[in-house]
Design a protein around this nucleic acid. Structure first.
Lengths: 217, 217
DNA sequence: TAAAATATGGGTAGTACTACCTATAAAAAT
DNA sequence: ATTTTTATAGGTAGTACTACCCATATTTTA
């Protein structure tokens, strides 16, 4: 295998330096570009031949996810490795959408990055074992902590209206669909809000979006 | 280990029968409920003690994902195994959100289901190797071909505001956070809406929720 | 059977956002 | 150097929803 040209990006200079040294422990790996934010990384890609990009997710100006997206638009086959401090679900999902080749936790970086790099340059993929273990753990309920408990307080009419609210329908539309007065819909909304202790403008819409299972998305 | 009470659901009776026999090859496994659609499966759960649920995704009346969601509302710790014919990204992402314990391709079902069942009842997880391999392959661009196109029309100020909108913040709150006039926020909102061809009450909020990656949920 | 919850609808006031208008200064693009 | 875009902010009108008030008929619960 010939030498791998590697781009790394992280907003913490010390981590960046450490990362570079860990990577260059390998004979075949050479860090040819270092960026301190996403914008720099994207720009750097356009001015160099890069075989692998290793990006931190949490960066100012442009985060790793955005940067990765831009980089893949420019060089679709580029294997990108994302580094992150946090075991969070949302950014990982985003990374899946974008088409990231590897996802490594910073805490495991020293042991994982090199393995990950070799995995992705060969067209494979790599996810930190701790991350994948976390991802499929139960608490995907972060969004809905008390789902049925609260929903069971509602009557079927109220549930029906909540369901239509979750589809971004206006009270006028709901009224027309159910052949009732718009006023009745308002009253139902108020009753639902009171039962669920919701106040303020979009609180009911928000609850509906987060708690009502939409038939098909 | 004592006998596992298993619920299976699939709309094809022949597959259902085959699945049952494959599962019951194991001494410890007993299929105590069979459902031909999601609704039945959810109902069945409420009338029986179930240790593991194995659901097909593509079912009439209520699909496996919806059914799984309902079932977890009722019995949050239930290990659910989803079966699917297709290596698609979207339903898998949905499954991740819901909190599914295992994801098995039908083509590998015979060899995988039993392993998967044992994995999930022990609190672990299981994904068909072919599926996980596919997920991290390049062409994630097939799903959202023009996502960034639209977002890239926006200026950074507009993006910042969009991000705050997605967090259900009011224009007043956004204005205070950015030390600008509420009026300016309104103007930005209008400009964003015009750029994205959005009209009507909650269309901007909807767009924000659906297109802006929220930092941590 | 009496009381409570539910579904229906009306009134009034206030808030938040949309949808248009205008305007100015700074920055970016041509 | 001129034009365009961006960010700022104000005005006005209308719409949609919230948050209260009220009433009545039906259904459910106690």
């Amino acid at each position: 295998m010939q030498t791998l040209n590697i781009l790394i990006a992280d907003d913490h200079p010390i981590f960046l330096k450490g990362l570079k040294e860990v990577i260059e422990t390998e004979e075949e790996c050479k860090v040819v570009m270092q960026a301190v934010n996403g914008q720099e990384a994207v720009f750097a890609l356009k001015t160099n031949r890069i075989d692998v990009a290793v990006l931190d997710i949490d960066m100012p100006r442009m985060n790793g996810l955005e940067a990765a997206q831009k980089m893949l638009e420019f060089q679709p086959q580029l294997p990108i490795l994302l580094l992150t401090m946090h075991k969070e679900r949302a950014p990982f999902m985003k990374a899946l959408e974008i088409g990231i080749a590897g996802y490594v936790l910073k805490e495991n970086a020293v042991t994982d990055v090199v393995n990950a790099i070799y995995a992705v340059v060969q067209g494979g993929n790599y996810i930190s074992p701790e991350m994948s273990a976390y991802l499929l753990r139960k608490p995907a309920k972060t969004i809905k902590p008390v789902p049925d408990d609260k929903l069971s307080l509602l009557t079927s009419s109220e549930r029906q209206i909540l369901q239509k609210i979750s589809m971004y329908k206006s009270s006028r539309e709901i009224a027309d669909e159910l052949f009732i007065s718009e006023k009745t819909v308002f009253n139902h909304r108020m009753n639902i809000s009171k039962k669920l202790n919701l106040t303020g403008k979009n609180s009911l819409l928000r609850f509906a979006i987060e708690h009502v299972s939409t038939p098909d998305t």
